[in-house]
Amino acid sequence: MNIFRLLGDFSHLGAIIILLLKIWKTRSCAGVSGKSVLLYAIVFTCRYLDLFTHFVSLYNSVMKIIYLVSTYFTLFLIYRKFKATYDRNHDTFRIEFLILPSAVLALLWNHEYSVLEILWTFSIYLESVAVLPQLFMVSKTGEAETITSHYLFALGIYRFLYILNWIYRYYTENFIDWISVVAGVVQTVLYCDFFYLYITKVLKGKKLSLPA
């Protein structure tokens, strides 16, 4: 464990909690992409199956369980409890275009041809693009609430912090996992445009709105 990974894990946790609290407090999931949350639920489910087979540490197991439970609870809030507020007309990204290529790529490029390993690899590829329905929704409506922007920032910066962690681990432990690195870089690059808008607008107290 190093500082980059710890900060990454907590910003990821922060993103999940911000989203959950925003929906819970406002009793509304307007502006939130249920499809992105659904993709994250698939990602965590496929990746954390190793909870049953492989113990890393108490920290690792507890975080996995928190990520899983809070993401499924958010999904329940969006699609059941507050479904009347769900903006489904703007959440129209076709997620099969993300799921199928991720599955095919996981079958082609993985560390080992086993069920758990392919599911892990699939989750890494799917996670790298899982934000697209949410970004698509923001671009379609042309704006995002400030709290949604904070959620997206925390969600994006987490993988960037992981990249710093992988560089650190490369030099200190001689450890590198190319699948994670390449997918993590793709994931971070997808946020660049958003990061720019976040820094130039949201941090200066303005609402995130896209130029017409």
């Binding site: 990746r47 190793d50 890393v56 540490s57 560390h111 992981y162 001689n174 590198i176 994670s180």
Partner: peptide
């Protein structure tokens, strides 16, 4: 460089 497939990250 050792390429491990032990997944110890989240």
């Amino acid at each position: 460089v050792t390429v491990r497939i032990e997944h110890d990250e989240l």
